[in-house]
Design a protein around this nucleic acid. Structure first.
Lengths: 352, 352
DNA sequence: CTGAAAGCGCTTACAG
DNA sequence: CTGAAAGCGCTTACAG
């Protein structure tokens, strides 16, 4: 690798001058500028940005910590971060901690987890990243996971209740409300709901949205129409079966994720019911499986790419405000989008 | 951030000594070691690795260039790279070039594409990465995409015909052969095949594998049983329909990807055929949709995680051999794994 | 066992 | 407009 010193010698100028032609060309005469550039190009001089960073104390780098890149939400989030960061001339150091592979489901036993995170953040700060984005593997409270740290940190697909940092997520309540309204719009009044695990904040928020939609349309909440699932297909199947064998079964079902909606499809097939003619169904997440089902599933799309972008934007803004991580928490919740496919139809059966 | 100079001053030793206690503790007396460590811990001293890298001319960093992180193969490959790299104490700078978003399908019009790649590799070398892993968005020849470069580069999910570098992929021919053999084992003799696009190397390799399996089992290749698809579901549907309406239809179908296999399921449903009782089906890729179909699809799983690991391993080995990128190409093709699910059954119909 | 000093490859305030 | 020099935060050959 050729250095600035060598370029300077060959161009018969000082290293200062070479630096100026590269970083502040107007400062040097056209003549020497050309002279230097000729050498620069000839030797394909590519300045060592490590050295530059050391000198100017700025790396233009942010660290991403993913709990698990292989989770379906991660790639789009990273894509969004990357795209935005690139536009602001920031680069990415990626740290994937493989949460489940490494410490199984004991991530709540925080000792081991905290150690892993501490190691990772130390590496990152040692490499002089200017901020950190923490991408959760599932949406939950991660307060305290990253200890006290002098650079800004942003959380996405997870959140913190501490009064610092940035948290970018989506609005579960509004999304569930939208999904339910959509079914109501299609003249459904008996709308079953299959929830996720009850220890999940997302389950509760989505339930609120569901109830809000019913309430606003003057529909009574029928507790029989609510079944508790665990996010897995099998639970969707069981819940679907129970719902469909009710004396007065729902004409539509809202499953809190696409996976459980798959279970509902199984239950409907088994009962000889056709979706959407006999039963309307909407899922949540818009993951790959949702358009692989027969029929293609209508669902709520997560704004993952945008979450990445907003996260990067807020983080980089904060970096350049030099406010460190001591600013008040900035919580943002983006909207999900309803994706209409083939699993919902107008209800033609009797009214309530 | 506290520096080594400040630590040295507080511990009343030289910076050299602080450096020794951190990097070569046996070199210093226990007494001073303790004295220094006390200060180090008290101030939570975290050495600036940018400065260290500059001095020792080693960054322990590799750059990953992904053509598109959102493609289904990317996350597992990255996970594999990350895991291996971490064990060797290497870090990752990620560059996602968003191939399709950025330059659409004109990546073969190499001018714009080459420019993008040149920019990215310049950034990476400027940041002193010691090697580069190029992760393709689909498996194809990318020779010349990365120009002449002094550090080693490894390609995965794509390859190069130039006689340098490393290319880690999987064995399409063997995998297709295995899939076909599996169907033969299940007593199928009339085995339809739905190919991918004919301009894809993968299509040709898999076709070879299919024919090899037939040949080895003394089954004649019946050209009527081969239909050309384009990787999309619709083409699988069309091909499936044609195959099933043949006077002497196949009892099993091998679709060259899971997506097209979904189309075959549609065609079978439409024809009133049950999978696997009336028709056996195997896909390829083992992507999310494959276990979302009804029935769950038997398919060939790609060794993505291992591809990432092997790629990282070979790259880091080469880095530490200091052989640069001038070594002979190292082409490796890993085996795929047959995933048996519910779409294949023993053929109980008449023999050939 | 410990320290003074040089140097990694840059940038930039300062002087001329 | 240009250059000499200091310095970013480390490591390490050398001397004592």
């Amino acid at each position: 690798m050729v250095t600035i010193k060598e370029i300077a010698k060959m161009a018969k100028v000082s290293t200062a001058t070479v630096s100026y032609v590269l970083n502040d060309p107007s400062r040097v005469s056209e003549e020497t500028r050309e002279k230097v550039m000729k050498i620069v190009k000839k030797f394909n001089y590519n300045p060592n940005s490590i050295a530059k960073s050391l000198k100017i104390k700025k790396t233009n780098t942010i660290g991403i910590i993913t709990e698990d890149v292989t989770v379906f939400t991660a790639p789009e989030i990273i894509d969004g971060i990357e795209e935005y960061a690139e536009n602001r001339n920031y680069h990415i150091i990626l740290n994937n901690i493989r949460l489940f592979k490494r410490i199984g489901n004991q991530y709540k036993d925080t000792a081991k987890f905290a150690k892993v995170i501490a190691d990772v953040t130390n590496v990152l700060t040692s490499r002089q990243v200017e901020g950190i984005i923490y991408v959760g593997a599932h949406c939950r409270d991660v307060t305290g996971v990253i200890g006290d740290i002098s650079i800004p940190v942003a959380y996405t697909y997870c959140y913190t209740t501490a009064d610092v940092g940035i948290a970018v997520n989506y609005n579960d309540e509004a999304a569930a409300c939208r999904a339910t309204e959509y079914l109501i719009t299609k003249k459904h009044q008996k709308i079953g709901i299959i929830t996720g695990r009850m220890d999940s904040m997302q389950t509760h928020d989505r339930l609120k949205g569901y109830q809000k939609a019913l309430y606003e349309q003057n529909l009574l909440f029928n507790p029989q129409y609510m079944k508790v699932g665990d996010w897995e297909r099998e639970s969707g199947y069981r819940a679907g079966k129970e719902l469909l064998s009710l004396p007065d079964p729902p004409t539509a079902i809202f499953a809190m994720n696409d996976i459980m909606a798959g279970g509902v499809i199984d239950a409907a097939n088994e009962a000889g019911l056709h979706i959407p003619q006999d039963l309307s169904l909407v899922g949540f997440d818009n993951r790959e499986c949702s358009y692989s089902y027969t029929p293609k599933l209508s669902t709520m799309a997560l704004p993952l790419n945008e979450m990445g972008k907003i996260c990067a934007q807020k983080l980089i803004d904060r970096i350049n405000n030099r406010a460190g991580n001591r600013q008040k928490t900035d919580q943002v919740k983006l909207q999900c989008e309803l994706i209409e496919r083939d699993s919902v139809s107008l209800n033609r059966r009797e009214g309530i």
